[in-house]
Nucleic acid binder design. Structure first.
Lengths: 235, 235
DNA sequence: GGTTGACTGTCGGGTACGCGACATAGCGGC
DNA sequence: GCCGCTATGTCGCGTACCCGACAGTCAACC
């Protein structure tokens, strides 16, 4: 049985638990595995996810086979932004980027709660706004900043999300998310490793010096953080 | 006095006019001028815009001075997406890209109608979803496709919006929107002009061969169109 | 303990694009 | 008609990045 205390590990479910006098028994806690596909492109949305320490990523697949990350969802949010806006499917792939725990509820239950619980609706809207603003920043960042800068930004955002300095990550995967070549990622990563900012080996990344990594990153990291971190303050 | 017939030139106000039995007298019709700033970065949102034949663009300003278009709003939508999600300001610049007519209502009136008229709320949500999905496509497109392809896509989207083959556009402005150098835009534009797809002179662009321009564009044009065009079908 | 596969390091050639500069050409003001 | 401004055309150099290939290396598994 889920308690309010457990639910509070996701910012939106925290709001829900404190606003809803009804049952929360239908919400399940699951373990997501790395690279597990949650919602295929164009498939009907029938479940809505609320990460705890898992990180979910939304990826755009292009015709030429490229796949580029367009958004991420951590414990401040939910994949329900699409359902909340009335979508029946998503034109992007939703999958698990970093494995961990995640709450799930059915789409039907999600919509019922949206309709009946104002605080829940507001929390989802707040996250949707942040998600949109972060995506706008990503549009500009992808156009203007170097691989090095964007690599630093990506690592920092993920670091904030998982809350641990070490997390699973291969250069291959990072290259796909950033939409660049693996050799490009390698150049950035090995430079940062040589400088002692990070260390990594065979799919395990560790951030050693957060501050100096921030200095290498573009402003987009701070702007992204400014959107997400207020959502984690328990109001 | 505005009639329903006039209001119907914007897809969202069309929905409003047909759902609301109350007064629409507070909605004004204004002429927007090219490059007119509607909402500065971070300024409080106090007006919400509903383009008719004007095109509004949302631009991210980076610290290094670069400005990159992250979204556009035409007669299928409204700048109210931000207010509808509870924002009090927008981290991006909202300005007029192509001059023309546009409806305006106060933020207060917008929120009152959102709260009281379900059909209006649904219409704004539908557009918000499309706006989000188009932005996601832009993230990928900016990363993966050539200047030539993206230039074609931009021209086609604008063409669809304004509904006329000729519209005001300088290479300088297009370069800013695309986040590329002017010489890059010049190369693409002069190639298309040489091929007879377009013609232009001193800030006036004319699309001559829509179909062949489409063939040069990436899939992102079609995907963008697929998001926006259903909103223009009078339901 | 050897094999296999995944992950990482490295390199060379090719190219798209940025940047800055300069020339040209219309267009409007006077 | 002249001037000046804005928009466009062009070019050369520099470079960030892509692509493909190949080699080393660690981990797991038989």
């Amino acid at each position: 049985m889920l308690t309010e205390d457990v639910l509070s590990k996701n910012a939106i479910l925290d709001v829900l638990a404190r606003a809803d006098s009804g049952s929360l028994a239908d919400i399940r806690l699951v373990d997501l595995e790395r690279e597990e596909m949650l919602v295929p492109v164009g498939a009907p949305i029938d479940r809505v996810y609320f990460p705890v320490d898992a990180v979910i990523s939304v990826v755009n697949l292009l015709k030429d086979g490229a796949s580029i990350e367009v958004g991420t969802v951590g414990r401040e949010g939910t994949t329900g932004v699409y359902a909340a806006l009335g979508a029946t499917s998503v034109p992007n792939l939703i999958n698990c980027q970093v494995d961990g725990q995640c709450f799930v509820m059915s789409r039907v239950a999600f919509e019922l709660r949206l309709a009946s619980i104002a605080e829940f609706r507001v929390a989802v809207s707040r996250f949707t706004l942040a998600y949109l603003n972060v995506m706008a920043q990503l549009v500009a960042c992808n156009r203007s900043h170097s691989i090095d800068q964007r690599c630093a930004r990506w690592l920092l955002i993920t670091l904030d999300r998982v809350g641990r300095p070490t997390f699973p990550l291969t250069q291959e995967y990072l290259a796909m998310m950033m939409g660049v070549s693996r050799s490009g990622v390698n150049a950035a990563a090995s430079a940062y490793a040589a400088a002692g900012f990070i260390t990594y080996s065979r799919g395990s990344m560790t951030v050693l010096d957060r501050d100096r990594l921030m200095a290498e990153s573009c402003e987009c990291y701070e702007r992204t953080r400014a959107e997400f971190s207020p959502l984690l303050v328990r109001g």
